[in-house]
Simulated assay, not measured.
Amino acid sequence: MACGGFNSNQNLVSTLCRFVGETVTIFTKSGGVSGCGFTGTLFGINNEFCQLVTDFGTAPANPLGGPNSSCCTNLYPEHNCHRQTSVGSVCDIPIDKIAAFCHNAV
């Protein structure tokens, strides 16, 4: 029995579940840039994959429509209602490819 370590993927999954919603860094058993780790908010986890939100999308320009809506241009004709938007990004990491993960102590 390993002292303080993970002796199965299920133990790792159980531990990762405690950090859903927290920012973590996960290092994978891979080379190149992917071996440098992935940092993001742990969003979901199952016995096969964990999912990190690595970049959040932008908020809507206004509650009534998108940045190019007539509401924006009609209400604020002097403003430039066009803005850069991002849909964010998600990283799915296979559980059996995790080498280590880092999290805050508190």
Rank of each mutant, 00 (worst) to 15 (best):
F43N: 12
S89M: 12
I98T: 07
L52H: 03
N46Q: 05
T73W: 08
I98G: 05
V13R: 12
A61S: 10
T41L: 08
G31T: 13
N104G: 09
T15S: 11
I26Q: 00
I45V: 15
D96F: 00
I26H: 01
I45W: 03
T25G: 00
S69F: 05
T54Q: 06
C17D: 12
C17R: 15
C91K: 01
K97W: 07
C81F: 07
I95H: 13
N80A: 07
T73P: 06
C50R: 06
N80Y: 10
S8I: 01
T23E: 05
V13F: 07
K97Y: 11
Q84T: 00
R18F: 04
F101I: 10
I26Y: 01
C71I: 13
K97A: 14
S34Y: 02
D92E: 09
S14K: 12
S34V: 06
S34G: 07
A100F: 08
M1T: 05
L42F: 01
S70P: 08
C91N: 02
F19W: 02
A61M: 10
Q84L: 12
S86H: 07
N68M: 05
E78T: 14
V33Y: 00
S14N: 15
L12R: 15
K97F: 09
G40I: 02
V20E: 05
P77F: 03
V13Q: 11
G65V: 12
F101H: 02
C81G: 09
P77L: 08
H79M: 13
V20R: 14
Y76N: 12
L12H: 13
G31R: 15
P60I: 07
G65A: 10
S30W: 04
S89N: 14
Q10L: 11
F27W: 11
T85L: 03
G57R: 07
G32H: 05
F49P: 03
V33L: 04
A100W: 06
N104Q: 12
H103E: 01
A59V: 10
F43K: 15
C36N: 11
D92F: 11
S69G: 05
S14V: 04
K97H: 15
P60C: 01
F27M: 12
K29H: 11
G57W: 07
N80I: 14
G44W: 03
H103N: 03
G21Q: 09
V53N: 13
D96R: 04
R83P: 04
T85E: 08
A59M: 03
P77M: 06
F43Q: 14
K97I: 05
N47T: 13
L52I: 00
A59W: 01
I93R: 14
S34K: 07
N104T: 04
C36L: 14
Q10W: 08
L16P: 01
I45P: 03
L52S: 04
